Simulated assay, not measured.
Amino acid sequence: MTNKIIGYLLLVLSLTFSVHSYASSFKKLNVTATAYNSVRAQTDSSPNIAAWGDRLKPGMKAIAVSRDLLKMGLKRGSKVKISGLPGEYVVLDKMHHRWSRKIDIYMGKDVRAAKNWGKRRVTITVVHS
């Protein structure tokens, strides 16, 4: 009986640690990147407020991430580097659940810059999650 209990405890512990390590397992990931703006035509009546309540301001290096990336270990406040762009970007917004392996780069009110960015494949590197 004692061996059975120990076996169950070991199984539970190993599953717990393996789930935790999966959640923070990636350091680099290839994703699709688009861009968005804080204008009413692209959001709602409060275009400067992100999904977690953060106030977005032009010039911020912020991104929205698809929810599957949140399940992989990214969270509000995570910092990432995006291939092809300078500096670090902070996860401050999340996307509709229909998207996967996708980020949306915040470009303030510069709609032209967002359209010029278009849709690209990039690699994100987690700096801090």
Rank of each mutant, 00 (worst) to 15 (best):
G77Q: 03
V31D: 01
S24E: 14
K4F: 09
A64Y: 10
V19C: 01
I124L: 01
G59M: 05
D104F: 12
R55M: 10
N30R: 10
Y8H: 05
N37G: 03
D54V: 02
G53L: 03
A51N: 06
S45Y: 09
K28F: 09
F26E: 00
K28L: 08
A114H: 00
K75W: 04
S46W: 00
V122L: 01
L92P: 02
S66P: 09
A41G: 14
D104V: 12
Q42R: 11
S38V: 11
A23V: 06
A50L: 12
V127E: 04
V127W: 01
D54H: 07
N30G: 02
R101V: 02
D110N: 13
I49N: 05
D104P: 13
N30M: 02
M95C: 07
I5W: 12
R55W: 06
T125H: 01
A50I: 00
K94P: 00
D44H: 08
L11Y: 06
R121D: 12
G108C: 07
S129K: 13
Y22C: 04
W99Q: 11
V65L: 09
A35P: 10
M95D: 01
G118H: 04
K109Q: 15
V126G: 05
T123G: 05
E88V: 09
A33F: 03
R55V: 10
V111S: 12
M72T: 01
R101M: 12
L11E: 02
T34S: 15
R112M: 13
G53T: 03
K27T: 08
S78H: 04
Y106K: 07
I5Y: 11
G87S: 04
K81G: 02
Y89A: 00
P58D: 03
T2H: 08
K75E: 09
R98N: 09
T43K: 12
K81D: 00
V80R: 14
L92K: 13
I6M: 03
S24F: 07
I82Y: 11
Y8L: 15
S78M: 05
D110G: 11
S21R: 10
G7L: 08
S14T: 15
Y8N: 06
S66V: 13
A23E: 09
T2A: 11
G73S: 05
L13E: 02
T32C: 02
I63D: 04
R40W: 06
R76E: 08
S129A: 10
S83G: 07
K75L: 02
Y36A: 12
P47D: 08
G77D: 07
L69A: 01
T125K: 06
A23I: 06
K94S: 14
K61H: 12
G108W: 09
M95V: 05
T2P: 03
D68H: 08
I49K: 13
Y89G: 01
Y8S: 07
I82F: 10
Y106Q: 06
V19A: 14
Y106P: 07
K109V: 12
